[in-house]
Amino acid sequence: MEYEFHWNIVFQKMPELLSGAFVTLHVSVLAMLLGIVIAILLAIAKMNNSKPFCYVATVWVEIARNTPALFQIYMAYFGLGAFGIHLSPYVAVLSALVFINAGYLTETFRGGFQSIPSTQYSASKSLGMTSIQTYRYIILPQMLRRIYHPMTNQFVWSILMSSLGILVGMSELSGTTQRLQSLSFRTLEFFIVAAVMYFIITKLVLFGASLLSRRLFKGEI
């Protein structure tokens, strides 16, 4: 027996899918921004060798990078729930993504920072630049070029991983798709359309990122 496609129902539900997609973008952007802020702090902590901070940062990075995202989300939703801390699905997924983004980006930032040769510091110092000027004009611009692509990839990864929200009943794109297909039994149609939407979102993000990088980084490195 052949499967008969019925697309009408999917298109009727398009507004709901689109609002799911909006939640997907929303949670990913937020997870990225918070992840960046925390990663900057963790990277500084790791590089400063100040014992307690360095220890916290190392544990954070190791857990985030070496356990599945699924596990992080379960821990945030059910794990904390067992201790009486009930997060909404949105907040649970957001916290898990922030946790992982921060872990990965810490290493990205640390690597970017350490890849700037020390001769760049002595060169700018010898020209009479203050430390702040050295970072502002010499170190950070070079670092930003080196971490830009890893950061873009991390963002795309966040968008795709937020689909695990389906497991805790979050109404982002996957969760919404799941609910709509179970009501209509048009499983394949809904998931195909959702997949296409993910594809379009990530392609748009990558396209935007490459446009931006051409405006930001005129020099080569």
Partner: peptide
């Protein structure tokens, strides 16, 4: 003080993200 003392090093250390002119005009 360092403004009075120009220094050039053994290793190349131009600022790679800037043009030649920007390198010289920055400081």
């Amino acid at each position: 003080l360092r403004q009075k003392l120009g220094m050039v090093f053994q290793h190349f250390n131009a600022f790679p993200h800037m043009t030649v002119l920007e390198n010289a005009a920055l400081a």
